[in-house]
Amino acid sequence: MREFFERISKIDRRIIYLIVLVGVTIPLLTRKGFEFKPLPEVKNAYNFIENLPEGSNVLISIDYDAASMPELQPLLEVMLRHLFRNNLKVIMMGHWPLGLPLGQIALEKIAKEMDKKYGYDYVFLGYRPGIAAVMLNMGKEIRMVFDVDYKGVPLDSLPMMREVHNYDDIALLIGFEAGSVGDFWVQFAQARFGQKIILTSTAVVTPDLYPYYQAGQIVGLIGGLRGAADYEILVKRKGFAYTGMTAQTVIHVIIIALILLGNIGYFALRRMR
C-alpha cells in the first residue's frame, strides 16, 4: 500500500509532460468547442465598441510579443474585424518593439480582408522608446512623439491623421497587454487625460487589471484566451480562441486531478509515518 501511495505522490515528470501534451494536442486538433456565456467585463467592452459612432478613431497599443501570441493574437484579429466592420478608424502603435510586427501583420491581413485603405481607414505608427513619456506627450500632441508613421510618411500627409492631435481626438484606446504597460495607460492616459480604455491581457496579467475595471477606470477588460473566446462569441465569429478553450478546460482538469493525486499520496504517507 505504501508503495502505491509513494508512486502516486512521485509520478515521473516525463509522464506528466506526456499527459499535458496529449491533453492539449487532441482538443486543438479536433477543434471542438463548448458553449459558454461571455463574461460581463467582455460584454461591456463589446458594447462600448458597438456604440462608438462611425468614423471614430481607435488607438491600439501592441504591448506583447510572440510569447503571448496564442492568447492575444486571435483577439487582436477578431477585434480588428469588429472595428473595421463598424467603420471605425484604427491607429496602431506599441511599446514592445519585438511584438509590434505581430500587430502590423494582423492589421495588414484584416485590412486587406475588409477592403480598408492605409492612411484613410488605418495607420501604423510603430514604436518610440520611453513608455510614460510617450503617453504623456501624446496627450498634448501626437506629433511630438510620432511626427511620421512607420514608413517615414509625415502624419499630416495621411488624411485620417490630419485632425488627430491628442487623446481628445481618440474615442477609445485598446491596450493588448502582456506586462505592466496597461498600468501606465491607466495612470497616464486615463487618469490625466480621461481617455476611455479597454484593456485586453494575458491570463497571468488579468488579475492585476481587475482593480481598474472595478473602479471604472477602464470600460472593459478582456482577459486571456477565455476573454478572446468570449469576444469571438459576441462578434459571432468563432475561431482559434473559442476552440482553444476546450484545450484549456482539459488542461485545467488535468492539473487539478494531478494536484488531487499528489495530495492523496501526501496525506496517506503522512498518516503511515
Binding site: I11, R13, I16, Y17, I19, V20, L21, V24, I251, I254, I255, L258, I259, L261, G262, N263
Partner: peptide, 12 residues
C-alpha cells in the same frame, strides 16, 4: 504549460 503542470503537482 509542462513546467506549471509538473510544479503544481509537486508543490501544491
Amino acid at each position: 504549460a509542462f513546467f506549471i503542470a509538473s510544479a503544481a503537482y509537486r508543490a501544491f
